[in-house]
Every structure is written in C-alpha cells, then in structure tokens.
C-alpha cells in the first residue's frame, strides 16, 4: 500500500514536470519562433501604438457630451455612445471586455431576453437614422430587416466580425458621415471580408477593426 502511494506521487511529479512545464514551454518556444505575430495575439499597431487585436472585437465609441460641453456622467460613470463614423461590432454582454469574457446567458424563452433584443433593435435603428429622420439605408426601417447578428449578443462577447449584410447597412451611415462615396466604403467592406475557411467552413464575416482602420486611412483622420 505504501509502495502504491510512493509510486503514485513520483508519477504525478514526473508527469507534472513533463506535461506542465516541458510540453507548454516547447509549444511556446516553437510558436514564438515560427508564428510570433499570431502567438502574441495578432496585435495591430498604428503609429507604434497597439490599437487592438485583429481577432478581438472592441467598441468604437465616443464620449456623450452633456449640455455643459463636458462628457456626461451618470452616477459618476462617464457615458459613451457608438461613434457613427465607425462600423460597430455585435452586441456584447461585457462591453467587449477582452480581459474578462462572458456569455449573456439570455434564455430562449425569457422576458429579459426580449427586453434586451428590443433595446439592441432600438439602438441599431437609432444609430442608422440620419439627422433628417430618414434611415441612411432606406431598405432598413424595422426589426424584421435587421440581420440577426446585429441585434443578438455574440458568444465570446468579443466577436471581431459582423455579417456582410450588417456591414452593408452600416456602410450607408459611415459613407454619409465621413462624406465618402458609398461605393468606396462598400469596396473596403469587400476587402476586409474574411471568406469561409477552405471555401466551406464557418461563415463569412467582416473584420470590424481592420475595416475601421482602413477607413481612417482613407479619410486621413484619426
């Protein structure tokens, strides 16, 4: 019996060294040697500053300016809202927190889920409505015309992609706000659309961060 315990502990210690140190360090070493960019998070830099990761969704928000000309505070929390110049990522239950991902856990038959969807629909329609009261994209006026990805929470809460349909609707707004021709913005959407892997695995998606960076380069603004 004592022999059994000694063997068990020796085995656990030996395998802890092999599988807990040697194996991950070997993978780390080889990865850092062959795929350093990917192994370190596919980070994107602009002017030497990391602006995010190509694989991680983020919010493109601007401060809400109050009547006094300063950023609005609600209970001490600075308020932000989607910046209309930028394509917006999918709804996220964690506000795209890349250091603490989480599911929304909204059930399929729950009233809270309905309320959340109604909120997302309202936000989306409001964002894509021009100051003159017309929709930027005249084909999208009600919930039924919104692609589901635009108003359903992502799983990871940091989904970097949106559907092409969603991007094409937002393209109307971005083009108008930035004063760019719609065809130019649509061409950028096409450039930053990732096709299905090997042509049939997964779904196509538009990488929002890369698309927004390209638009900033076109507009010459930051």
């Amino acid at each position: 019996m004592r022999r059994d315990f000694v063997t068990a502990f020796i085995a656990m210690i030996v395998f802890t060294i092999l599988l807990g140190f040697v194996y991950p360090m070997l993978v780390t070493g080889v990865s850092q040697g062959i795929f350093p960019g990917k192994a370190n998070g596919s980070l994107i830099k602009r002017d030497g500053v990391v602006v995010g990761s190509a694989l991680i969704g983020q919010q493109f928000y601007e401060p809400v300016i109050g009547k006094n000309g300063k950023q609005l505070l609600v209970k001490g929390v600075p308020q932000t809202q989607p910046d209309p110049r930028y394509f917006q990522t999918r709804p996220s239950s964690t506000s795209d927190n890349a250091a603490g991902s989480g599911f929304s856990n909204l059930g399929p038959n729950n009233k809270t889920t309905l309320v959340a969807f109604q909120g997302y629909i309202q936000t989306y329609l409001a964002l894509n409505k021009a100051p003159n009261g017309q929709m930027y994209d005249p084909a999208v006026t009600t919930a039924a015309q919104i692609p589901v990805d635009a108003v359903d929470d992502s799983a990871s809460s940091v989904d970097p992609n949106i559907s092409v349909a969603n991007a094409k609707i937002q393209a109307y707004r971005v083009a108008a706000v930035r004063g760019l021709p719609l065809t130019t913005v649509d061409a950028q959407v096409a450039t930053y659309t990732t096709a299905r892997s090997l042509g049939f695995l997964g779904e196509p998606g538009v990488n929002v961060l890369e698309l927004n960076l390209a638009l900033d380069r076109l507009s010459g603004s930051k």
Binding site: R90, F103, S104, N105, L106, P108, T113, F117, P147, V148, D149, D152, D153, S154, A155, S156, D159, N161, I162, S163, V164, A165, N166, K168, T194, G202, E203, P204, G205
Partner: peptide
C-alpha cells in the same frame, strides 16, 4: 449575407 437563425450567444464566424 446573413446567417439567420438563433445567433444569440453564437459567433459570426461559426
């Protein structure tokens, strides 16, 4: 250009 279906809690790329 959209997946349709129940995309609540699902990723666009899948």
């Amino acid at each position: 250009n959209s997946t349709g279906g129940n995309l609540e809690g699902k990723e666009q790329r899948f």
